[in-house]
């Protein structure tokens, strides 16, 4: 099954780079994409794949380092209006509306709860760094790479 792993984040803002660090582990194993921000480029990255996994830092109020998985059902709760920004869920929804045949049949979003996304650093917080092995394991399991 043709799969892609997409990491989203800014490597210069501490925990915001966690998605990119996780994706690094899969380079050369499956197709990988890194995005610093979200726009239609997310759709560009998804088209043509059967299975996709998106990895990003999230803020849900959980303990930093918690792994939170999202699926398509989350989309219904997301407002779409904004000023300059897009949400992952809205962009994916747009992708399915416009390219129903070319979008992946399965998309999973793995979120790692962040602690600090404002400090200029390429190192994650210890709590977030320690979550990376578990996130990698979950992704391997999901993609059947174990």
């Amino acid at each position: 099954m043709k799969s892609v792993i997409i990491g989203i984040g800014n490597p210069n803002f501490k925990d915001d780079g966690v998605g990119l660090k996780i994706v690094e582990h899969f380079e050369g194993v499956v197709d990988t994409v890194t995005l610093l921000n979200i726009g239609f480029n997310l759709i560009d990255s998804l088209l043509g794949y059967e299975k996709a996994l998106i990895v990003d830092g999230v803020k849900t109020g959980a303990e930093p380092g918690s792994i939170i998985e999202f699926d398509v059902n989350f989309w219904g709760n997301v407002y779409a209006s904004g000023t300059h920004n897009f949400s992952i869920f809205e962009i994916i929804r747009i992708g399915y509306s416009v390219f129903p045949e070319e979008m992946p049949k399965e998309i999973k979003i793995i979120g790692v709860e962040v602690e600090d996304v404002e400090t200029l650093s390429r190192e994650c917080s210890p709590s977030v760094e320690s979550a990376i092995p578990l996130a990698i394991s979950k992704i391997k399991n999901y993609l059947g790479l174990q």
């Binding site: 800014n10 915001d16 979200i38 990003d56 803020k59 904004g82």
Partner: peptide
């Protein structure tokens, strides 16, 4: 945009 890189990514 810089402040919205994390989910849910809206203002």
């Amino acid at each position: 945009a810089c402040s919205t890189h994390t989910l849910p990514g809206r203002i």
